[in-house]
Computed example of a mutant assay.
Amino acid sequence: MGADYSADCGKLRTGGIMGKLLYVLPLLVALMLAGCGKQESDLPVNTRLGGDFTLTDQNGAPFQAEKLKGKVSILFFGYTHCPDICPAVLAQVAQVYRHLEEDGVADQVQPVFITFDPERDTVAHLKEYLPWFKADMIGLTGSLEQIREVAKQYGVVFIKDQEAGEQGYLFTHSDYIYLLDEQARVRKLYPADFKIDEVVTDVESLL
């Protein structure tokens, strides 16, 4: 009787261990799979900036903010007749894009340029101008009312100067660059003289 009882207890103990393993193993597998997923970036989400909009791209097609989703975007507001800051920033954005090409992730990133000078930055002009930067850049224009609304959403200020210079009228404007995640949420702002390596690192943290 004693031997039989001991054997039964052994079976009970074994059954209890197996039951616990069957319970714990799925949890361990779930934790391992979660660990293999994409790590969330430390960049905070800016809930005060951004939003839906509709403009027109350099091909003359309507462009909604929804189309920014699925890629990380580097967004900049400016105008092509700017004598200094705007072309310099676009050139820096192009350098960021080339670094991302070298790292093999440029296809997941979309540079976007929104003009606040629709009078001169027409669809045809943007289509001719932006390829010079070799960064697969989307150019957006629209009516002045549309652009003012988008600029307001991103906290962008632009004021048309009354006196025209050698290149025609100019703008006084803010010059921040916006980093948007794959959900088109603003994650970081940079000054016009941003460090290229910093932007590359931040972009890759969102991929």
Rank of each mutant, 00 (worst) to 15 (best):
M1Y: 14
D4I: 12
A7C: 11
A7N: 13
D8M: 11
C9I: 13
G10L: 12
K11W: 07
L12S: 08
L12T: 07
I17F: 12
G19R: 07
L21E: 12
L21A: 10
L22I: 08
L22D: 10
Y23H: 10
L27F: 08
L27G: 04
L27Y: 08
L28H: 03
L28G: 07
M32D: 04
L33P: 00
A34T: 02
G35V: 03
C36F: 08
K38A: 10
S41P: 06
D42K: 10
L43P: 04
L43C: 05
V45H: 03
V45I: 12
N46A: 11
R48P: 01
L49M: 07
L49D: 01
G51C: 08
G51H: 04
F53N: 00
F53M: 01
T54W: 08
T56F: 11
D57I: 05
D57P: 02
Q58L: 09
N59F: 15
N59W: 11
G60L: 13
P62D: 06
Q64D: 13
A65Q: 07
K67E: 14
K71Y: 09
V72K: 06
V72D: 04
V72E: 03
S73E: 08
L75P: 02
L75D: 04
F76C: 01
P83R: 10
P83I: 14
I85T: 09
A88I: 15
Q92R: 15
V93G: 04
Q95F: 13
Q95M: 12
V96F: 09
R98H: 15
L100R: 06
L100W: 06
E101N: 14
E101P: 11
D103Q: 15
V105T: 11
Q108W: 09
V109D: 01
V109F: 12
Q110R: 13
Q110A: 07
P111D: 02
F116D: 01
D117P: 11
P118S: 14
E119G: 11
H125R: 13
L126H: 04
L126P: 00
L126G: 02
L126C: 01
K127T: 12
K127R: 15
E128Q: 15
Y129V: 02
Y129S: 02
P131K: 13
P131G: 12
P131W: 12
W132F: 15
F133R: 02
K134Q: 15
K134L: 11
A135M: 14
A135N: 09
A135D: 06
A135Y: 06
D136P: 02
I138C: 01
G139D: 03
G139E: 07
L140M: 03
T141F: 07
G142I: 00
G142S: 07
E145S: 09
I147V: 11
R148L: 07
R148V: 08
Q153G: 02
Q153C: 08
Q153L: 08
Y154S: 02
G155D: 03
V156P: 00
F158R: 01
F158K: 01
K160H: 14
E166L: 14
G168S: 13
H173E: 03
H173I: 02
H173K: 05
D175Q: 10
D175H: 08
Y176E: 12
Y178P: 00
A184I: 07
R185Q: 11
R187G: 01
L189W: 05
L189E: 05
P191E: 09
P191I: 03
P191C: 05
A192E: 13
F194V: 09
K195S: 13
I196H: 03
I196A: 04
V199P: 01
V199I: 09
V199N: 00
D202C: 03
D202I: 03
V203N: 01
V203D: 00
S205Q: 09
